[in-house]
Design a protein around this nucleic acid. Structure first.
Lengths: 202, 202
DNA sequence: CGGTTTATGTATCGATCGATATAGAAAGGA
DNA sequence: TCCTTTCTATATCGATCGATACATAAACCG
């Protein structure tokens, strides 16, 4: 059934992807409504009618980022047979994704919402929780490795997960500074050099 | 000799430290001139007369940050006798500094100027160069280790330096999310677990 | 066809942004 | 004491911020 009234002149998903891209590139505070309406190709009233306000638009753009950009990295974590391979793939996917030439460098979730209070960036808490969720995913994958028997019992899963999450965070900053895919892959490889020591029984 | 005219009613270094603290906490874009004049305890005309404009004030605050906050970390890199000890101390100092309870979490240089173009944040290029300088310092310390004989010849100094710089970058983000000093020290320790493999001859 | 509903385009809202004009206050030098 | 110089306090500048009022356009329904 077609809705009543005049139909929208734009594709909602399409313009939301454009908004996501702008937020990703310029940050929440660095993005003005003029930037958004220009990039999205719609007028301000259409934007507000469709997405509420700037904060809600950002929240919607964040969800799009998660489902369209972030998933590839985290899927690799589940696919591999062993925890070691999973972490290696995870870092490799991160390196390739963060230095992709046709998109902003680094991760929108990692880089955004690091300054000011919740008042300045409404999604600050949501972003922080996403980052903490990611650490948890790494830890759970490690614990699965322990359960599967490919990781020794008694290792400090939290410490190892914190370490690899921090490496991934850092890769966002390094990527923003222009690091090549090879450079990031080297860093991923270097991080995996710690694996044996970190996962050997204490 | 005392200068002519009415003397300043504030201490220039003191108010600059306050400005540095605000920029560190809220970021360049997230800091308004009202935030600054309030925190510095001076009127807007006094601020502009003493420091020029917002961008110049930020540049001055950045220098204060480098000399007053950043030095401790980088001094530790030179003090230690071996490259390994230098990197371990460097990461340990980073962990302690980034989670200090009486100051903003993480590093002002690492976190600032990651979004938008040079137009949005005038110091963006300067910040990027500082970050790249830091990677260079790490690489040079490694090369010194090779020259001193405590690091094997033929290792990829750039790769190792990139890795540890990326870990440090990541610690700024992890610290902003509220990581405890112990958690960051654990990550520093985990990063050092890669040292043997990274510095063994190929 | 009018009537209803929803979206669009223009023009603009009050608030805040960074930055200043202006007048008066506080010092030294004559 | 008066003049010059420099700084301070108030009040405000034009520009831009996020967000809307309003009139018109485009769909469906009868």
């Amino acid at each position: 059934m077609t809705p009543k009234g005049r139909p929208r002149a734009f594709d909602c998903d399409d313009v939301l992807r454009r908004a996501m891209r702008i937020f990703w590139e310029k940050g929440y505070e660095g993005t003005s409504m003029t930037d958004l309406t220009t990039a999205m190709g719609i007028g301000a009233p259409s934007l507000y009618a469709a997405f509420g306000n700037k904060a809600e638009l950002f929240a919607a753009a964040l969800k799009v980022y998660e489902t369209q950009i972030g998933t590839a990295i985290w899927e690799s974590l589940e696919k591999a047979a062993t925890a070691r391979q999973a972490f290696a793939d995870f870092l490799k996917e991160t390196a390739l994704s963060y230095a992709q030439p046709d998109q902003p460098r680094g991760c929108m979730i990692a880089l955004e919402g690091l300054f000011g209070d919740a008042d300045a960036i409404p999604a600050r808490e949501a972003l922080r929780e996403r980052r903490l969720d990611n650490v948890r995913l790494l830890r759970e994958r490690l614990e699965r490795g322990v359960a599967d028997g490919d990781v020794a019992r008694g290792i400090d899963c939290r410490k190892v997960a914190d370490f690899y999450a921090t490496v991934q965070h850092g890769m966002s900053i390094t990527a923003r500074d222009g690091a090549s895919p090879d450079a990031l892959l080297n860093t991923a490889d270097a991080a995996m050099a710690a694996w044996e020591t970190l996962t050997s029984p204490r």
